[in-house]
Design a protein around this nucleic acid. Structure first.
Lengths: 247, 247
DNA sequence: GTATAACATTAACCCATGTTTATGCGGGCC
DNA sequence: GGCCCGCATAAACATGGGTTAATGTTATAC
């Protein structure tokens, strides 16, 4: 059944191996998880604030985001998610969703019953730690975004976001040597960075004007990685790539 | 030994019971954790960005915060922590600290070796879930702050913070019926909300002028809870009090 | 080949919040 | 009792980024 496993390098395994090592048995157990796959169009909610899910979402293809709306209808995006991510893993331990998960592009999403994950963790306690670790890295990314939104200029924030997306996509094999797919509108980048669409436009032009990046047809090309990192005050520590605490 | 356990209601137990139920055995196991207690003055770093801790910090008394500095020296506070919190629990699974933990007031802090926590989790796997859950609630609070900093006005943000602190302190027994200790300077509130000291002052006066709160001698008094919640667009869902997912 | 929709781009104007600098005020300390 | 020191308060001024609204651009649809 094609739907039980997407293209050969199963994205979940790829993703987890970017933050830890997996034993062959653990890898097998992950590949054996029962999945129900579903396709979504762009801009659809997959899980909504207030829901009480009994399953988690694994992204197989496409870009998604977690977000929440203000009473006045303003949106803040908390995180971008890519293949291999389980954006609502927290629903395993927090009954009620306090935010929503929506697609940004068309997506292929696999649903995994909570009970199957619980069983997986009983069989492989170390995998529970790996997933815990993954949610902790999520939180580290939230903090870094908070620092940006609260204390950095629009220019620095945007450069930082582009650096982060490049690193994260590279690690899961979705980046070229110096380019990545960036299928986001300027409005969506604004909602992630706490800026208006117009100001994203101004700022993006600034970065392009300095030949740090090019952006065309949904492809972002890094023209000057050193310069971009500097503009974004970017330091990868917070992504905790392979930086496991010894058990 | 007085240092093995602080005033009768051990704050860690109190805190965990605010977000889940504990069995008598679990409670016993927590009380039996070997602690090394240390006193800190105000404004001291307890753990610093870049450290690779082999122990976690449990706050017994006082207020602390997690924060990080910009290259330009601006500070963003990510979270306030109170007795019963283990602010750097993540160090159990993330080797390198990506931010710092510092005291805001004089604090009594207990250190717990990572290995003791790992042993505790082996004996009581459900406690591992409870602590995981706690770090997930932390992340939920980060998201709510992000929404505020990115998309809400200064007035709404400040009101929201005061609501949050009231709820959190109430739940661990540190609140009066309508007042809490608020031993923070306006500069510290600004660093938490992404605002300048001066603007915190203006905004706080606004809230006081509307008779929503009073603030004197480090004590915050809520004069109009309904009004304050409304001003802060405050909804407790994100604190996930006792909102466990069934196992 | 024209209509439509979704975005990107521009420009003009405005305001919430930042910055700077002084002043006030209460508490600890010699 | 006088001197700091750390904070709160205040006023004047500066600005980054928001808002609004018009105009381009591109792609798909009929």
């Amino acid at each position: 059944m094609a739907s039980l496993q997407s293209p050969p390098p199963f994205p979940l395994v790829l993703k987890l191996e970017s933050i830890t090592d997996l034993s062959p048995e653990e890898r097998q157990a992950l590949l054996g998880l029962p999945l129900r796959v579903q396709e979504f169009r762009a801009d659809q909610d997959v899980v909504r604030e207030g829901d009480r899910p009994i399953q988690c979402c694994l992204i197989l293809e496409g870009f998604a985001c977690r977000y929440k709306l203000t009473e006045k209808g303003k949106r803040q995006i908390f995180a971008f998610h890519t293949p291999g991510d389980i954006p609502d893993l927290q629903s395993l331990h927090l009954k009620t969703m306090d935010h929503s998960l929506g697609t940004l592009t068309p997506c292929k999403i696999a649903f995994i019953q909570h009970e199957h994950l619980r069983e997986l963790f009983r069989q492989h306690p170390r995998l529970a730690e790996v997933f815990w670790r993954d949610t902790l890295i999520d939180a580290a990314i939230f903090r870094e975004w908070m620092l940006g939104i609260g204390r950095r200029s629009a220019r620095t924030r945007l450069a930082h976001l582009l650096c982060e997306l490049f690193m994260r996509l590279k690690v899961i094999g979705l980046a070229g040597s110096n380019s990545i797919p960036l299928p986001l509108s300027q409005a969506e980048m604004g909602d992630a960075l706490g800026l208006s669409t117009v100001h994203i436009n101004r700022t993006l032009q600034e970065l392009r004007g300095e030949d740090l990046v090019a952006w065309d047809g949904g492809i972002l090309t890094i023209l000057n990685w050193e310069g971009l990192m500097q503009a974004g005050e970017f330091d990868t520590t917070y992504l905790h790539l392979q930086d496991c605490a010894a058990a």
